[in-house]
Every structure is written in structure tokens, then in C-alpha cells.
Amino acid sequence: MSEQEIALNPARPYLVRAIYEWICDNQFTPHLLVDATQPHTNVPVQFVKDGQIVLNIAPHAVHQLHMSNEAITFSARFGGVSQNIYVPLAAVMGIYPRENGRQGLFFDPSEYDNVTEQAPENQESTPNPTTPEKKKPSLRILD
């Protein structure tokens, strides 16, 4: 078989997990650069600037961080309000330490062009962040 016939999984999820571990092992603060315009991306829209958002994913800043081959999920507080975050791996533009942004890893945006995207499981379809849907405020008690 030639290389063209073999469908390889994108390397991005593996590299994100590895760089995240390296950043944490070196006592730095991992930040994720996200393209908030990608489908199914659920991030706090009020903090999106030019279609992008930078998320602090340090262990002390997030709750229930999970990095799968499809997405990065966690909950965190934004402006004092806890929110569930869903970032498909196709939306991850880079991961880097806040203390030294040059030693991170940034990705080719076309890597996911030929990958079939599926709607996330257990995740409602979210509107595009550029047109936020107004919701009634709600209060939720977290354990």
C-alpha cells in the first residue's frame, strides 16, 4: 500500500497532550490558542477576539480536564461564572507556556481539511460564537 492509501489519524491530539505534559512538568502555565469560529466549539464568546481565544488550561485553573483524540473538554470560571468548555481538536491552533510563548507548538490549520467531523456526543449543537444566542441567567451548585 502506498502512503496515500493509508488513512492516518491526525497527530494534533497526541502532540497537544505531550506538550501539555511538558509544560506542566516544567512548572509553566499551559495556554491553548483556539479558533472559536470552528463548528461545535463552545467557549465564552465575550472573551473571543478576532475569532480566537486563549484559554489557561493549567491544572489549578480548570476542573475535569479531558483531552481525547476528538476534543478537549473542561469546566472553568470566566468572570466568576463556571462554564463547560468544548474545543474540537480541529479548533486548536496551538499550545504554549504563558511564561515563554515561543517554546510552544502551533499547528497547520489545513491538517483537518480532509477529516470528517462529527457532532460531539453529549454536547448540544452550539451556535457560532460570532452570533451569540441570549440565554436566561442560571445558577448551578457545583460540588
Rank of each mutant, 00 (worst) to 15 (best):
K135M: 11
G101S: 15
N42S: 15
S75T: 11
M93F: 03
Q38C: 12
V16Q: 01
Y96S: 08
D50M: 09
Y20T: 02
A71Q: 09
E3G: 04
T126A: 09
D143Q: 14
V48D: 04
F28P: 00
N114L: 08
M67K: 02
G79E: 03
V34H: 00
P127V: 15
Q64V: 02
N42A: 12
F28S: 07
G94D: 11
R102S: 14
E21I: 08
Y96T: 07
D50R: 12
G104W: 05
G94K: 06
V45L: 07
L105K: 04
E70Y: 04
V48N: 02
D108W: 04
N9T: 07
P59H: 08
E124V: 11
I85W: 01
N84C: 09
L105W: 04
P109Q: 09
W22M: 13
I72G: 00
S2Q: 06
Q38I: 06
T29K: 07
A7C: 05
Y14F: 14
E70S: 09
A90R: 13
A61W: 01
N122R: 07
I95T: 03
S68D: 10
D50S: 12
I23P: 00
V16M: 02
F78S: 03
P127G: 15
Q64E: 15
Q52L: 11
G51P: 04
L142R: 14
G104Y: 04
E70H: 07
I23C: 06
R102W: 10
N128D: 15
V48L: 04
S75P: 00
H31V: 13
T73Y: 00
N100A: 09
E117P: 05
F106R: 13
Q46P: 00
H40F: 15
F107E: 02
L89I: 11
S68G: 04
P120G: 15
K135D: 08
S82P: 02
M1I: 08
Q4C: 09
I141L: 15
M67C: 08
Q4K: 10
L32V: 05
Q52P: 00
N128F: 11
